[in-house]
Simulated assay, not measured.
Amino acid sequence: MSDYSIELADEPAMVAFGEHLAACCTEGAVIFLHGDLGMGKTTLSRGVLRGCGHQGSVKSPTYTLVEPYETPAGPVYHFDLYRLGDPEELEFLGIRDYFDERSLSLIEWPERGAGILPVADLEIEIRVEGTGRLLSWQYNTEKGRKLADSLRKG
């Protein structure tokens, strides 16, 4: 996916990386999370939410499509589009209202919303690497480039 990558050994490492990602998000962003079932997309999202100051539980929004969180760092929207039947359904959700300069949007299964979702600032792919995970990322915008560079330096 890119020359930006990191190997993570286990679930605590995935959560810690998510916390680091949150710290790098100094302004709103749209982040696509790619990976097969069970790769850790929701675990990564849990880390991001913790990094934004959320203290409660984080559940996968598989059936609701989106879980909104008001955090000390600002609004975070966790999307899971796995069960989305048609990208047009997102229009009925008022999807465009979720994306602004302040909000951070984490989107699992973004390919299911193709043509409706905005361009991602950053795309993260998660895949198996030995007994852990390999995360690789690429940017699509200037905001994403800054975010990708901050992640690499971390």
Rank of each mutant, 00 (worst) to 15 (best):
P75T: 12
L33Y: 06
H78M: 05
E19I: 03
R83F: 07
H54V: 09
L65I: 15
T42H: 02
D36E: 15
L37I: 09
H54N: 04
V48K: 10
Y82R: 10
H20N: 06
V66F: 08
D36T: 02
A22W: 00
S57R: 14
G85M: 12
F17T: 02
F92V: 13
M39Y: 03
S60E: 00
E67Q: 08
A23L: 08
A23V: 02
G56I: 06
E27A: 15
F92I: 02
H54P: 04
S45T: 13
A73S: 15
A16K: 07
G47W: 07
T71S: 00
F32H: 15
M39E: 02
P75A: 15
G40F: 03
H34P: 00
K59Q: 14
E19M: 12
G38R: 14
S60P: 05
V30A: 09
E19W: 03
S45K: 02
F92D: 15
H54Q: 13
E67Y: 12
L21T: 09
E67F: 04
C25G: 00
V48Q: 04
D80V: 06
L90V: 12
H54E: 08
A13M: 10
A23P: 00
S60I: 05
L44N: 02
L81W: 06
E27S: 15
A29E: 10
S45D: 02
H20S: 13
G56V: 01
S60H: 06
C25W: 01
K41W: 00
L81C: 07
F32K: 00
E89C: 07
L49G: 04
L81V: 06
L81S: 10
P61I: 12
R50M: 10
M39L: 13
L37F: 13
R46Q: 13
T43A: 13
L93M: 15
D80F: 03
V30C: 14
C24I: 06
A13V: 11
G47C: 09
Y63P: 08
L84R: 11
G28N: 13
L49K: 07
V58F: 05
D36L: 01
A73F: 12
G35M: 04
R83K: 11
C24P: 07
G94C: 11
I95R: 07
P72Y: 09
L84G: 10
E89M: 09
E19V: 11
V30Q: 03
E27K: 14
T26N: 07
T71R: 02
Q55C: 06
T26K: 14
G35A: 06
G53K: 02
Y69M: 06
L65W: 09
G94L: 06
P72C: 10
T71M: 04
I31M: 01
V66W: 07
C52W: 01
G47Q: 05
F79M: 05
L49M: 11
F92C: 08
G74P: 02
L37C: 11
V66G: 12
A13C: 09
